[in-house]
């Protein structure tokens, strides 16, 4: 029995063995709550793609909304459209009103009456970032860049997926993934589902419920149809904007959603606030049996 842990974005420059220790330590707290011993680290695989993602992202000069305001649209039409779609979806789901957005714009300034109103988009970014913390290295802009590149650049997808695929085994495997790692895991699992002996697929703080993201994944499916897919999130986590339910991620069999995580990390998205949740650890334990 093996456990495959797939991390999210913004891990570049970190020591993979330390990261793995942190994941296990957090999980240990949750397991202890159930009176269970910690996982044997030797049974846990922790593919690390943080540095690779940073390297690939750095090479791509993608414009932020602020860049578009300064230089005009059209620098990267595909990314601009993706940003707009995700941000509008986030604005709607976070119930950010037009008045709140307008309040961030210069009073009395003329407004473009069209979809290319990037000052408006930039104001939404600022409002969304308020849901994150200033000391966090997580910003909506960075998140969008990483996800966009992973989803739309086959070479980047392939290189990151390969890092994970290198650690697949023919033993029964529990997959635990977080944030962008849930997207990577989804991609890898659906490609290898026929050969893998999956015991459970666990996603934490997953952005897969954002339609602008799932729409770039081709035909969606449940790669863990036989054993179940468990998706946990904190409703205040802006990345895990929507549940993976029949509205946002209609697959058969449906995903088991758990929305009662109280993520204690500052941006409500950190892995340390997910892995110690009692329901999450209970699901891990059940899958280890």
């Amino acid at each position: 029995m093996r456990v495959l842990m797939i991390h999210g974005r913004a891990q570049g420059g970190k020591d993979p063995s330390e990261l793995k220790k942190n994941w296990l330590a957090t999980l240990e707290i949750g397991l202890a709550g159930h009176g269970k011993p910690p996982l044997n680290a030797k049974t846990v695989d922790f593919p690390f793609y943080g540095d690779l993602l940073d390297e690939l992202t750095a090479k791509a000069s993608l414009p932020t909304p602020a860049d578009v305001v300064a230089k005009g649209p059209g620098q990267n039409a595909e990314f601009e459209q993706f940003q707009r779609s995700v941000l509008m979806e986030m604005k709607k789901e976070m119930r950010i009103s037009d008045e709140e957005v307008a309040a961030l714009l210069p009073a009395g300034a003329p407004q473009e009456k069209g979809p290319e109103n990037w000052a408006w988009v930039q104001a939404i970014v600022r409002l969304l970032d308020r849901h994150l913390t200033p000391i966090s290295d997580m910003t909506i802009e960075n998140f969008l860049k990483d996800v966009f590149l992973y989803l739309t650049r086959p070479n980047i997808t392939k290189r990151i997926d390969r890092t994970v695929e290198a650690m697949l085994s023919d033993e029964p495997t529990l997959v635990v993934s977080h944030s962008l790692g849930t997207v990577v895991a989804f991609n890898v699992l659906r490609r290898h589902k026929a050969k893998l002996k999956l015991t459970k697929f666990i996603t934490l703080g997953s952005p897969l419920g954002i339609t602008a993201i799932s729409s770039k994944l081709g035909v969606i499916e449940n790669p863990a149809a036989a054993v179940g897919w468990y998706n946990a999130y904190d409703e205040r986590d802006i990345v895990a904007l929507n549940p993976l339910d029949s509205s946002y991620f209609p697959v058969n069999p449906s995903v088991m959603n758990y929305n009662a995580v109280k993520n204690h990390t500052e941006n409500r998205h950190g892995i340390a606030g997910y892995l110690n949740d009692p329901s999450v650890t209970a699901t891990v334990m059940a899958a280890m049996k």
Partner: peptide
Amino acid sequence: VRPPIRYR
């Protein structure tokens, strides 16, 4: 056709 994509 409304995303996410459900049909093959």
